[in-house]
Design a protein around this nucleic acid. Structure first.
Length: 293
DNA sequence: GTGTTTGTTATCAA
DNA sequence: CTTGATAACAAACA
């Protein structure tokens, strides 16, 4: 599941390959959600240079040389953006091992899940794969982008604005489960199911506690835990549980550090009691009943 | 066939 | 207006 650390990893990778590159051709293969007309997209993008790549929450933003235009990518659950240069997947200068390739759904590119192919003037190709077709590609003008960012995204965990005071403020008098609150992108941008569960474990807070019930010390612990987990996960290049791979088709390394996510029935690393799984906010939720109060 | 997987939005209720 | 709960979407897998 691409959450903030996964999208950030892809952004950093693609930035190395794509800044300064110009679109040469665009092929839209099979889209259900929000893909602009293939002809229109191809016509608008052709010849446009990529000036910069940004990220807000889980949204990837490509700034184009037409200062008014931005190309947005959302990977949702199973989206992948994989970059290939001269028929070789780039992996820090080396070609990919079999093991890395196996993580790219279907192996070779393009594959049956490839929904769009972007070719660039410098002989590079960007593949947008999406098994479940939740993801989208969207071309927007600057005013529309500003509106999208303003309306849908709270502070990033790494921002100064995401302080214990801010967290306390948004939790106050909220009767939703704490997990639902930290998953809400309008309140905190970037957390998804994996890092929400992991942050709550690190802060020793049960995911089904009502937000308003958190004590000051718990709010402080949770704020710190969220920042920590996100930083660590970016360093590890994200978590590959199912479909996520980076821009080179390689798996993320954070699965190794998971304490509760998908560990139901296994023993807690801290207290050696079994990790439980329940449903909170409509999502599979993993926690340790002994360590989390 | 059944249940489960999750990021986001739509819809409805209070 | 805000808040919260739930279903819906999509495709694959056990």
């Amino acid at each position: 599941m691409p959450e903030l650390p996964e999208v950030e990893t892809v952004r950093r990778d693609l930035k190395k390959y794509l800044v300064g590159a110009s679109f040469q051709s665009i092929k839209i293969i099979d889209f259900k959600n929000g893909a602009p007309g293939a002809t229109f997209l191809a016509k608008t993008l052709k010849g446009q240079e990529i000036k910069d790549l940004r990220r807000r929450g889980k949204l990837l933003i490509l700034d184009l040389s037409n200062q008014n235009k931005h190309l947005l990518f959302h990977l949702k659950m199973t989206g992948q953006l994989i970059y290939q240069h001269s028929n070789k997947l780039l992996a820090g200068g080396h070609s990919l091992s079999e093991d890395s390739l196996s993580a790219a759904v279907g192996g070779k590119l393009p594959n049956k899940y490839t929904r769009a192919i972007f070719r660039f003037n410098h002989d590079g190709t960007l593949y947008f794969n999406d098994l479940r077709k939740f993801g989208y590609i969207k071309l927007v003008g600057s005013p529309e982008l500003k509106e999208i960012l303003r309306n849908n995204y709270g502070p990033e965990p790494m921002d100064r604005e995401f302080s214990p005071v801010y967290l306390a403020k948004i939790l106050k008098q909220r009767r939703a489960p704490i997990k639902a609150v930290i998953l809400n992108q309008q309140l905190i941008a970037g957390l998804g199911n994996i890092y929400a569960d992991e942050a709550l474990f690190a802060a020793k807070i049960r995911p089904d506690r009502l937000a308003e019930s958190l004590k000051n010390g718990e709010v402080l612990a949770l704020q710190g835990a969220i920042v920590n987990i996100i930083k660590k996960a970016i360093k590890a290049r994200g978590t590959t549980f199912r479909n996520y791979v980076d821009a080179q088709g390689k798996r993320g390394g954070f699965a190794h550090y998971l304490q509760v996510y998908q560990r139901q029935g296994q023993l807690c690393f801290l207290c050696a009691k079994p990790v439980m799984k329940i449903k909170v906010a409509g999502r599979g939720t993993h926690y340790c009943p002994h360590c989390q109060k």
